[in-house]
Design a protein around this nucleic acid. Structure first.
Length: 314
DNA sequence: CGAGTTTGACCAGCGC
DNA sequence: GCGCTGGTCAAACTCG
């Protein structure tokens, strides 16, 4: 995310009553007003006064909301810079929190692979007891990264397009999340040890959380295509390059609905895309919440009619 | 027919 | 030891 994504989020509702109205049929309104008698004019004026007050009140609310938004934006920028600092500090550390370590991860699977943590394989372990690891292990090669992908919540497909070729080998419903977790292996290269777990976020079912383990031992498919002259779309690159962090790692969110981009070349482009999509999502959410609010729509109708009355009475 | 997906069974680690 | 849980296997199935 980028601070620039929040630069243009003020609530400009175009409610300035003093703005010239080119689209109003003036002659038509003048004719209607001329036909009305004095009593009707009086009542219209009274109503117009009330509506003007109401409009002022709403305008001040709008101003307050705009100020609140600006304040939130400042807080967001401060948090963003703080996050960047933490991320840059963590990039020098290669400590990963391993929730569990199973013997199966060290054994050779039916693909002839060492487990995903093969580069930290427990060759020195003489027995089962000595193989037990502390929860926090220091090692430098194993990569664990997490990528969030925004998708349609109604879409049950757990596929996360990142340019690689994945083969699903299992699915499981976990305790902490009602949505199933899908397990994938990289099938682009026969001996690629990379595995991927995809599960919907508990907080937001429209977000798929993909956890990548290990490093690809082959060229990225898109680069292979690019080397052949195909430059149609860039890809995520090595997923490991997106993020390799601790358990408190920040995540990268791609909005595939908004952008239609399924593949992005690097972190920098992800940030850019996410900035614009974040702005779009924010605007959509604001618009939908406003249009769903009957008070707001009534106030909007009042303001519009106020403009018409201001024009006709002056 | 081969590659990929589904899904129930199985295995291993962990806590009690 | 037992039950719970996450991860993996593999037969059956689907699809192009």
């Amino acid at each position: 995310m980028e601070s620039s994504s929040l630069q243009h989020t003020s609530l400009d509702l175009n409610l300035n009553p003093f703005r010239p109205m080119k689209e109003v049929p003036k002659k038509e309104l003048a004719g209607v007003l001329a036909r009305a008698d004095d009593h009707q004019k009086e009542s219209i004026k009274g109503e117009a006064g009330f509506l003007a007050e109401e409009f002022d009140r709403i305008s001040s609310e709008n101003k307050k909301l705009t100020e609140m938004l600006a304040h939130m934006r400042e807080n967001y920028n401060a948090l963003q810079s703080h996050l960047m600092d933490l991320e840059s500090n963590n990039s020098n550390k290669e400590y990963l929190v391993i929730p569990r370590k199973r013997k199966a991860d060290q054994r050779t699977d039916h693909y002839g692979n060492i487990g995903v943590q093969g580069n930290i394989e427990c060759s020195s372990c003489s027995d089962e007891e000595s193989c037990k690891r502390p929860k926090e292990i220091s090692y430098s090669n194993a990569k664990v990264s997490r990528v969030c992908v925004r998708t349609d919540a109604s879409n049950t497909n757990l596929a996360v397009k990142d340019g690689y070729q994945w083969r699903k080998y299992g699915q499981k419903v976990t305790r902490d999340n009602p949505s199933p977790r899908a397990y994938f292996r990289c099938s682009y290269a026969p001996n690629c040890p990379v595995k991927k777990k995809v599960q919907r976020s508990v907080e937001d079912p429209s977000v798929l959380v993909a956890t990548y383990e290990g490093e690809h031992n082959h060229m990225h498919p898109s680069r292979a295509e690019l080397s052949l002259g195909s430059s149609q779309c860039a890809n995520l690159g090595s997923v490991s390059s997106v993020s390799s962090m601790r358990s408190s790692r920040p995540t990268v969110t791609l909005d595939l609905i908004q952008t239609g981009l399924s593949e992005i070349s690097n972190k920098k482009s992800i940030v850019g895309v996410e900035g614009t999509t974040f702005q779009q999502v924010l605007l959509q959410q604001m618009a939908s919440s406003l249009t769903r609010d009957p008070k707001f729509t009534a106030a909007l109708a009042t303001a519009i009619s106020g403009r018409i009355l201001d024009f006709t009475l002056n």
